[in-house]
Design a protein around this nucleic acid. Structure first.
Lengths: 148, 148
DNA sequence: GCTTCAACTTGCATTTTGCAAGTACATAAG
DNA sequence: CTTATGTACTTGCAAAATGCAAGTTGAAGC
């Protein structure tokens, strides 16, 4: 069962959340957009984990449908599009923090993202604020849902 | 690609975390053990989302292998086993909090777990402490990894 | 009207999932 | 000692999702 599953949701917020990003790739895509500063389809393809192009296309559409990312034209390159987190997407920042903390604590062989791990540990608030501010700077008028 | 994927991990803590619980079911199982107080295989089968028995068996083995849950005999019923979170598993409590907050914020049709959502919002620290204390009370000698 | 490049789409083999049914096995009951 | 019972799984098979390689699209530049 994938993140796009047709199984009726139970109504549990965790089940809902998993229906949005509960698969092997969605949060890695969110990570790339939120932390690594990746923006184009081609850059996402080159990620550390090597997603294949059909799956990436499928996931981006899903994440767009679920309101996590949005696509716009790259003003500097007519060929390329830019993917960006929506406010709903950047509200995943605290979740990313927790995953990084847990993963960083229990992962034996760590290498990439050590910087992010240290950052979250030393100044979690700023780590999350940076993700959110990127979204605010993405020039459009969508309004953030009140989050807490 | 499932949570058990053989794809080499990138070393990123998020990638590691997803290799442990990055599928459609693992966190629902953790939820049942951590929040709903479910303990037996049969109870897990009856969860809101209706996991099938072969998948549940597979996931429990995976979660055991990854050190998230452990199984012990039920002292009160010779037939049944009790599944419990390890300290590594209960260290997912803050992650559960964040998922519940995010899911509760953006999920339209909510019903079950509203209690948990309200609890996290009103007293997140206690919500997480309850999960951890259940693990400490599970009589065995494993030591918690220092988490933060 | 031919090329280029970023973003996909398609075809097909492999893997994972879901469903229904069956098995294992320790004790309890007769 | 033979059969029943309950709990935790296995097994077989169809359906769906994934991964890989290759092909397609479409606007602009030449």
């Amino acid at each position: 069962m994938s993140a796009k599953s047709k199984r009726p949701l139970s109504g549990c917020p965790i089940d809902y959340a998993l229906s949005v990003f509960g698969d092997r790739w969605s949060l890695l895509i969110v990570r790339d957009l939120a932390i690594k500063g990746v923006k184009t389809y081609a850059e996402l393809l080159e990620g550390w984990e090597g997603i294949s192009t059909n799956i990436l296309a499928q996931r981006m559409k899903h994440l767009e449908d679920k309101g996590i990312v949005k696509k716009r034209k790259n003003p500097d390159n007519w060929r390329s599009s830019l993917y960006e987190l929506t406010p709903k997407g950047s509200d995943l920042a605290p979740l990313l923090s927790e995953i990084i903390l847990w993963g960083g604590t229990y992962n034996e062989a760590e290498k990439p993202m050590n910087e992010a791990y240290k950052k979250v540990r030393s100044d979690r608030a700023e780590f999350e604020e940076e993700i959110r501010s990127n979204v605010r700077n993405a020039a459009d008028g969508t309004q953030a849902t009140e989050f807490r």
